[in-house]
Design a protein around this nucleic acid. Structure first.
Lengths: 120, 120
DNA sequence: GTAAGCAGTTTCCTAAAGGTAAGCAGGATG
DNA sequence: CATCCTGCTTACCTTTAGGAAACTGCTTAC
């Protein structure tokens, strides 16, 4: 096999691996989305509750992020017609497929912090 | 336990989970970093080779991302004093700790794409 | 001797993400 | 009746990421 053919094959293989990662990043990238999911995983469900559980997030950002997470079918917004109306956010079943990703990210983050502190 | 106390505990627990994720995101967030790591995992090592393997990346962006990946100890830049000088990038051992994260992201991305296509 | 490859850099620009601060409608609380 | 809570929205502004294009110095291949 020629060198250029070799490179072509390599690049095709690369693409095959990169495409899904791009798809995934489209959905969960950004400073806040995963943190919001974690908050929901921890049992928070009301807007202000979630807001308070995430340091330095603002209403505006939270509101926007919740909307796009809903569009991506990761969370559900439910309006309960109690008096007064109660609004609750919850994870969908689909969101549970993300648990492994979040978990691995957490584990890696913990070790990374350890590494940084060790080295100074 | 009072309700506010309960919330306080919940928030502390949240923080404990969110902090490492933030740390991780600091290192690997952005449109290109993981793709670059994948390219290296696939055996690419020269600047132009990596550049060609990642569709639509530009020299400038690649150059910057390689620098920050090096700062974070995920890759190594080696200058071989051949004639002409050859420069190679490679993954560090530390980078291998990220493999699980990348893998889970890939798996999730594949399923997500499937889901989207099914639903239209 | 000119074109092409290597490993980038430089400058300039745009778009998107995110932050600040304030406000609003409805209900509850003292 | 004043203030606080809820679940947001609005307008504005700053910062950052990222893209386009050109260019550099060096080397090799035709």
């Amino acid at each position: 096999m020629s060198k250029t053919e070799d490179e072509k094959n390599n690049h095709e293989e690369c693409q095959k691996l990169m495409l899904p990662v791009r798809d995934a990043l489209d959905v969960i990238s950004g400073k806040w989305k995963i943190l919001i999911l974690i908050s929901l995983m921890q049992g928070n469900s009301r807007f202000r509750e979630i807001e308070r559980s995430i340091p330095r997030i603002t209403s505006k950002v939270l509101s926007n992020e919740l909307k796009t997470l809903e569009e991506h079918k990761l969370i559900k917004r439910t309006v309960y017609d109690d008096y007064p109306v109660r609004i609750e956010y919850s994870l969908t079943e689909y969101a549970s497929t993300l648990e492994k990703v979040v978990n691995e990210l957490q584990i890696w983050g913990i070790n990374h912090r350890k590494k940084i502190l060790e080295e100074g």
